[in-house]
C-alpha cells in the first residue's frame, strides 16, 4: 500500500513533472547529479517548499494544496527529517533536542517523550550522551541523535537529505545502520544521497536528471551479505544512466 504518492510535480524550472510512489515500510534513495533537483524534490514532497503544480499524497492527505500551518502540523506529527548539516538547538543538550518537537507540541506528555527519547538513544547506541551539549559529540553521534529526533513522534515517513554527506566513512556506516534499524521496524524512508554505497542499501533507487525521473533500480530488501554486490550493481546502473 502506498504511503506517499507524487503526481506530476512541478517546481519552477527545476522539477518538470515528477511522479512516483513509495510503499509503506519501503526505503528508497533519490540519486542524480548536482542540480538535478533531488533536494528540491524532497523539500516539495515533504511540504517544506511550495510546488508550482502537481499532487502529493501522504496516505489519503493531499499535502501540496495545504496552508503553511497545516503543512507544519503534518511535518511535526507524521513526518521525520534528517539533514546533512546536523541542525540542533545549540542551547539545549542532546536529549532535550531529541524530545523538543514532541514536548513543544504536547507538553502534557513530557515524561513519556523523554522516556521514548532515551529508548531511541539506547537503540542508536548513544544512550550515554543524553546530557551532553551538541558541541561535545562527534558528527556521527550527532546525526544519530538527529535520527532519534526524527523518530520521536513515530512518523509515517522519514525524509533524509544527504544524511551521510558531512560524515567520514565510519560515521556514515553507523548512521546507515541506524536507518536500517528503524526501517526494519517498519518506518518508511525517502533519502537523497550522492553515495552509491548508501543508495545500494535501499530497496529502490530513483534516478533524477534535469528535473525528471529517468530511471529506477529495484534492489529488494537489504541483506548484509549482499552489501558489496548491491553497491557494484548500483554503480553499474548509475554508470549506464550517465552518472
Amino acid at each position: 500500500m502506498s504511503i506517499l504518492k507524487v503526481k506530476d510535480l512541478k517546481k519552477d524550472s527545476i522539477l518538470k513533472g515528477v511522479s512516483f510512489e513509495i510503499k509503506e515500510g519501503e526505503m528508497i534513495a533519490i540519486m542524480g547529479p548536482s542540480g538535478s533537483g533531488k533536494s528540491t524534490l524532497l523539500y516539495n514532497v515533504s511540504g517544506m517548499d511550495q510546488a508550482s503544480s502537481g499532487e502529493v499524497y501522504l496516505g489519503a492527505t493531499e499535502i501540496a494544496g495545504l496552508g503553511e500551518d497545516d503543512k507544519a502540523h503534518i511535518r511535526l506529527r507524521r513526518m521525520g527529517f534528517v539533514f546533512q548539516m546536523m541542525n540542533m538547538l545549540s542551547d539545549l543538550n542532546i536529549i532535550d533536542n531529541i524530545a523538543f518537537p514532541a514536548v513543544h507540541s504536547d507538553k502534557k506528555n513530557q515524561k513519556a517523550y523523554y522516556e521514548r527519547a532515551k529508548l531511541l538513544m539506547d537503540k542508536m547506541n548513544i544512550g550515554d550522551l543524553a546530557q551532553r551539549s551538541i558541541k561535545e559529540v562527534s558528527g556521527g553521534q550527532l546525526q544519530r541523535a538527529c535520527i532519534c529526533r526524527s523518530m520521536i513522534l513515530k512518523p509515517e515517513i522519514i525524509f533524509a537529505d544527504e544524511p551521510t554527506g558531512a560524515l567520514n566513512r565510519a560515521a556514515a556506516a553507523e548512521v546507515m545502520d541506524a536507518f536500517m534499524e528503524i526501517n526494519r521496524d517498519g518506518t518508511t524512508i525517502m533519502m537523497v544521497t550522492h553515495d552509491a554505497g548508501v543508495a545500494g542499501m535501499c530497496e529502490r533507487i530513483l534516478y533524477l536528471l534535469d528535473g525528471e525521473i529517468r530511471g529506477e533500480l529495484a534492489l529488494g530488501k537489504y541483506k548484509e551479505a549482499e552489501g558489496r554486490e548491491r553497491e557494484q550493481r548500483t554503480m553499474k546502473w548509475l554508470s549506464a544512466m550517465g552518472w
Binding site: D69, A72, G80, L89, P101, H104
Partner: peptide, 15 residues
C-alpha cells in the same frame, strides 16, 4: 539555520 530546522521539523510559525 536553527529556525529553518524548527520549521522543517514542523514547529509552526506562531510557536
Amino acid at each position: 539555520r536553527e529556525i529553518g530546522m524548527l520549521k522543517a521539523v514542523g514547529i509552526s510559525r506562531m510557536d
